[in-house]
Structure formats: structure tokens, C-alpha cells
Simulated scan of single mutants.
Amino acid sequence: MANRTTLKDVARAAGVSQMTVSRVVRGDTVVSLRTREHVERVIGNMGYVPNKLAGSLARAHSNQVAVLIPSLVNNVYTSVLAGITEGLERGGYNPVVGVTEYDLQKEEAQLISMMSWRPAAVILANLVHTDRTRSILENTPVPVVEIMDISGDPIDLCVGLDHEAAAATLADYLMERGYRRFGYLGWQTNDFVAAARFRAFRARLETRGYGLVAPDVYDAPPDMPAGKKGLEMLLSVAPKTEAVAYSNDTAAMGGVNLCLELGMRIQDDLAIAGFSGLRMAQCLPQPLTTIRTRRRDIGKTAARNVLKRLSGTPVERKVDFGFELLKGQSA
């Protein structure tokens, strides 16, 4: 955590008066365009966020924690959010939630809005952010916890798992089961940890002389309809595919549905594997082979580490929850 950047700091760095900075922040047209652009550049570089709370309110204790997650449609993040909420409530704090839809610019805009109300802490997904977001987080004095991914260097704290190791473990298992022609279906455009798993899965296959059939055949948000449609497209291009890995369990269940509709024997005619370990995927007639992640525990630990940091208790900078390979009956 850093000392909070103030309006006075910005004025000093920009070489202008505090009143000028205040006018730029308020959008006052009396400031020349040249000066405005200069001050705005300094504001961006310093990660300064104007305080919308006036006077005594600005000094009041806040019990709000900013939480930015990519999706509430994805069942993974509903579990994470449940853990965050449970953990924060124990300390008398409440989450204020923003949904970024895997859009870094939207994450940045929501963070700026939330920071202007002076939250007690920030919890947000993954380690990839815009430069402006990173600057704001690096310059805030409140705790920052990045969740789900631990593969890089966190801004402050992080809680999650090694996605590349998880993908490699799944690839090894499928190869050990004797499969040789592999497909992979998932959304790589904006979901950075899903993209990392895809790369790691593919790289692991290549170490054994295998590859992916039609790796670019489908790139869409991984829900159940997309999983069904993606498999249909994959099989039309590569009908001899033996095993398909999905970027999450929800999409994988869409693939299972397609197999049932086509009369294909799951595991024998086509193996299907997922990621995340959703309960409903384990309730299928043939439980899904997948990687189970401790999503709720990740959320609870992120919240607990916020409370520890706020109370001055030492906190482990990086917490790895690991993962578990579930050897289901789909692969």
C-alpha cells in the first residue's frame, strides 16, 4: 500500500495551483486546453482519483469494499463472490460489486468511479489491468487483493491458483488415458487466465508430440449453448477428434448434451473434460472429468486478508489454493 495521492501532490507535480487542478477535475472551462491536457496527463501518471466525499465525510470510516469481477453469469464468480461477501460481513464490511464483462477498459472506468467514494479496500480478478488501473492501485493506501491467478507479481496481495499447472495436469491425464487427437474449446479473447490454460494445455501436448485439431475453430464466451455449438463446429471440421477439453464446466456440459443428442458414447466415442469442478457437472449421469478449484475459499481468504491488513496483522502476499483433478466418467 502507498500513501494516497492528493490534489496537492498533483498540483506540485504539474507545477500549477491546487485551484487549477480542482477546476480540471470539475471540468471547469476557464482552464486552457493546453493546461487541462497537461494536468490530466499528470493525474493519469500519478493514479490520482478525485474524492467525491466532501469535508467530514471524506475523513469518515468506510465499511465498503470495492469488488470487481468479470461475470455473474459464469458460475465460477458467483461462488467467489459468495465467499467474499461471507468473509467481509464477519468484519462488518460490505462489498460494492462491479461486473466488468472481461473488459479492461470497463474495469478501469468502474474502479475510478468506486475509488472516488474511498472504499476501505479493493478486490479484483486476475493480474492483468490497464496502465491507468495499475497506477491507481499502486498509489492507493488501501489493501488491494487480486484473485484467481497467482502466476505473476501482485500489486499488493493475491489469492488463487496456478492455471498453467492445472491445464498441464489435465493434459497429462488425458494423454495417459490413451487419447491422441485433442480439441480445445474456450474463449481466449478477453479471459486471460482461460487463455493461459489454453496455451499451457497445448504446450503440454506438444512436449509429447501431439497437438490440437482446429484450435481456432470457435472463440466465444463459454456458456452451455456455446459449448454445444462449438463442439458441433469442431466435429464438422475434425470428426476423428478423440478428446475435447473445455475452458469451463458449463461449456463442457453443453458438449455433453450434444453427444447425447447425436447418440455418441461419452468417453468411448468422445471424451470431454472441463475446468472448475461445478457441483452440477458432477451430477451428470457420467460425472465430468475436470479440475476442481476452491472458488468460495479463494473469495473468503481474499476478504480475510483484507480484514487482516486493515487491522495491521501481517498477511501472506501470495496464497496458492492449488487444484484437484477429478477423474470423472467423461474421460
Rank of each mutant, 00 (worst) to 15 (best):
T169A: 15
R279K: 14
M280L: 15
A195K: 15
F192E: 06
M253S: 04
I84N: 09
K52T: 05
A109P: 03
I112N: 11
L104F: 14
A168D: 04
D153T: 15
L157E: 02
V25H: 03
D320A: 00
V73K: 14
T289R: 04
V73E: 13
A243N: 03
G91V: 05
G328D: 05
P221N: 03
T78M: 10
D269V: 08
E164W: 01
T130V: 07
I43E: 10
A194C: 08
S276H: 12
K327Y: 03
V16T: 11
S311I: 04
G230Q: 07
I291Q: 02
A273K: 01
V76H: 15
A214C: 12
R296G: 00
L157S: 02
I84L: 08
E37C: 06
R309P: 09
R34D: 13
R317M: 05
S71P: 03
Q64M: 14
A214V: 05
V144G: 06
Q18R: 14
I112V: 14
S17F: 02
Y184N: 06
D172S: 13
L234D: 09
Y77N: 05
G209N: 09
A214I: 06
V21R: 00
T35S: 01
A214Y: 00
L262G: 02
V145T: 05
M233N: 14
I155F: 05
P119T: 11
V30F: 12
E40W: 02
A109R: 14
W187C: 10
S151N: 06
Y179Q: 08
G44Q: 15
G92Q: 09
R208V: 04
Q105H: 14
A194T: 08
K229G: 11
I123A: 10
V217P: 09
A331K: 01
Y93S: 06
N51T: 10
D297R: 14
V97T: 11
N190M: 12
M46T: 11
M224V: 06
V122G: 07
L235Y: 01
L231S: 00
Y48G: 14
M19H: 07
T85C: 06
D249A: 01
A60Q: 13
I291F: 04
V237I: 10
C283N: 13
L68N: 04
L104S: 10
G178F: 12
N126R: 10
A203E: 13
V24L: 07
A238T: 02
S330W: 00
P222K: 03
C259F: 07
F321W: 04
A195C: 09
M175V: 09
S247Y: 15
P154C: 04
E107V: 12
R294I: 07
G322Q: 08
S276T: 15
V49C: 12
C283F: 13
P95E: 12
P221I: 04
M115T: 12
A251P: 14
Y179A: 06
S330L: 04
P314G: 00
G178N: 11
F275T: 02
T313H: 11
S236Q: 15
V213I: 03
S116D: 09
R4C: 04
Y93F: 09
